[in-house]
Amino acid sequence: MIIKILGSGCKKCGILAENALAAAHAAGKTAEIVKVTDFAEIAGYGVMSTPALVVDEKLIASGKVLTIDEISALL
């Protein structure tokens, strides 16, 4: 699956990316992380607060850093 992290490259985005990757691995899936930093593209997902998490082009969460468990429950 393709996991996109939307955000301007802040520290929170990095943590969210790590958590998402860990959650994907825990679920036994291979995941590719794509970081989206262009705000026009970020807005294209309807996101107003970053960091946001997009999995296979579907917006999962915005404005908060989800934990590994939270992402696992949403995947």
Binding site: F39, A43, G46, V47, M48, S49, T50
Partner: peptide, 12 residues
């Protein structure tokens, strides 16, 4: 820096 995404979201 957060005001541009807000502008886009509000206008849309």
């Amino acid at each position: 820096c957060s005001s541009i995404p807000l502008f886009i979201g509000f206008t849309a």
